[in-house]
Design a binder for these strands. Structure first.
Lengths: 192, 192
DNA sequence: CGAGCAATACTGACTGGTCAGTACTGTAGC
DNA sequence: GCTACAGTACTGACCAGTCAGTATTGCTCG
């Protein structure tokens, strides 16, 4: 797989992502984005029609990247649900460690109402995770009265970990801890 | 416990909370808050010095309410950690069901840098939850390599559940499901 | 090859509207 | 009359979005 040279649009999104990750929406000026991306303000409007569109584009790109990773790595698990769960956790964590601020706003729940395209890609990702759990339940390997909720927990927990990270949090630590919780909660080992 | 008549400040915060819960910060106008609270715009400035201060006050009040509830209910558990965990979950869920939008912005991670008072009360809440888990680990009833992370997961998971709630999500369902995950994850019952 | 030209990409000064914050006025209750 | 506050008018900073103008690229034809 070749990594194509980032387009102008991607460069602008990179700059915008860095700013939106660091400050709330209303504190980021279009001019800031333009100057960080080293383009004129008008150039941004050649690609998106408003500041909010830029914001949404960042989030859509984020979900697309996660989805691509899942599509790439999940098939190799050949249906072994714990392997799949590990792949999901790693995909999410890799993205979150690479772009913590973007991950945060992807789960922000700030803009209302949400853009239809964004809703669609977000659903695709959550449903993919949910499907992994559901097949595990169907095969008897997992026990979960509501996989939909568990998928949401997983996505949100990672956000929480990055919002207020414990000192010395590493990718491995977080990954192991999440798998620990998924495997057996914090109970001593016997399910009632 | 007597419920004191809400003060003028509380009425304003109620109105502001309803609006900030429904729209992002920059889409809420001070005038909207004033008219919903049926006060003059100037009156708001008798209590807080800026729009952002109002926003922060809502969040602080939210954490204070949760903390008060924990202080009230936890002692009756007399150190039985699973009872304490149930009390924590119920306290958070009661608040979240009563004020879902406020719960969301309490975990928003939007404003930077955070107000010191807010940091303090937020820490108090998370540390209280963390302490419950830590004592469970110390007594051998719980197994958790990082209670700090688990506390963050719990707080964030509830936010996630409310962001994209499954159809027919009730307080009981969510409570049972969270306790299910805490007790044994989604594993079949044996911890490796 | 390269001059001339068209199409495209980009720029940044400018504008118009918005809104936080302030000042002032009218009035209800004591 | 006086206090307290709702209501309203005002102002000035701020900034998203525009657009006339410039630079660059690529193409056509002698």
């Amino acid at each position: 797989m070749t990594k194509p040279r980032p387009t102008r649009a991607d460069e602008i999104l990179d700059a915008a992502a860095a700013l939106f990750a660091a400050r709330p929406f209303h504190e980021v000026r279009l001019e800031d984005i333009a100057s960080l991306a080293q383009v004129g303000k008008g150039t941004i409007y050649l690609y998106w029609s408003s500041k909010e569109e830029v914001y949404l584009a960042i989030i859509r790109r984020g979900f697309a990247a996660v989805m691509e990773r899942l599509d790439l790595d999940l098939p190799a698990c050949r249906g072994r649900c714990w392997d799949e769960l590990r792949v999901v956790v790693h995909a999410l964590l890799d993205f979150a460690f690479a772009f913590p601020g973007v991950y945060r706003i992807m789960r922000g729940g700030n803009l209302t109402p949400e853009d239809p395209d964004l809703q669609a890609i977000r659903r695709k990702v959550t449903e993919r995770i949910q499907a992994v759990i559901e097949r595990g339940v169907a095969s008897g390997e997992l026990v979960d009265p509501c996989p939909e909720l568990t998928a949401q927990y997983l996505l949100s927990s990672i956000r929480g970990a990055f919002l207020y990270p414990p000192a010395g949090m590493t990718r491995e630590l977080l990954s192991d801890h999440l798998m620990h919780i998924l495997k057996g909660g914090i109970g001593g080992g016997t399910r009632p």
